[in-house]
């Protein structure tokens, strides 16, 4: 398992549209289980509803962890997605 921390930078947070894009991105990494955790909760990031229910607003620190498949590649992709979110 690999993991990394990042902060949600998008001013409006991770709302529905980017969350959908993130789910699609994660689905493209077959065999990888991606989890996103806040201080409060950890969810399977392939679940759109779980992801949205985290309420990831601007400034929230999250930990991304990936298990299985192309772990590092998936981790980098998810992190870069979250960090470049506008």
């Amino acid at each position: 398992m690999v993991s990394a921390k990042t902060v949600i930078s998008a001013p409006t947070g991770l709302h529905a549209r980017p969350a959908g894009e993130l789910v699609a991105l994660i689905k493209s990494f077959e065999g990888s289980v991606v989890k996103i955790s806040t201080a409060a909760r950890s969810v399977n990031a392939a679940s759109m509803l779980s992801l949205l229910s985290l309420g990831l607003k601007a400034g929230t620190e999250v930990e991304i962890s990936v298990e299985g498949g192309r772990e590092q590649e998936a981790l980098d992709a998810v992190r870069s997605f979250l960090e470049t979110l506008a």
């Binding site: 409006t12 947070g13 709302h15 509803l49 949205l52 229910s53 309420g55 607003k57």
Partner: peptide, 20 residues
Amino acid sequence: ICAMFSEIDDEYLRARVDDV
């Protein structure tokens, strides 16, 4: 599923519950 959203402290993001 809506209940999962009830603890979000950001009003805008919590409002995604309407989409659900």
